[in-house]
């Protein structure tokens, strides 16, 4: 349903649901990307940098 259609209190019109709204209406997809993004950019990247620090002799 479009923002405008519902915002005006009109009946939902018979139109395809926009892609972005389908994304935002799927909590489990959001959960997946909400876990993946910080895991890759913060956790994995950070851990890889520490692992690559040379060990002192």
């Amino acid at each position: 349903m479009s923002d405008e259609a519902q915002g005006d209190g009109a009946n939902p019109v018979d139109e395809p649901i926009p892609f972005m709204q389908q994304v935002l209406d799927n909590p489990f997809l959001l959960l997946f990307i909400g876990i993946t993004v910080p895991t890759v950019f913060y956790l994995i990247w950070g851990v890889m940098e520490i692992v690559s620090i040379p060990i002192a002799d």
Binding site: L30, I33, G34, V37, P38, F41, Y42
Partner: peptide, 8 residues
């Protein structure tokens, strides 16, 4: 959801 947690 995408970026807030990177503030760590």
């Amino acid at each position: 959801i995408l970026f807030l947690q990177l503030a760590s």
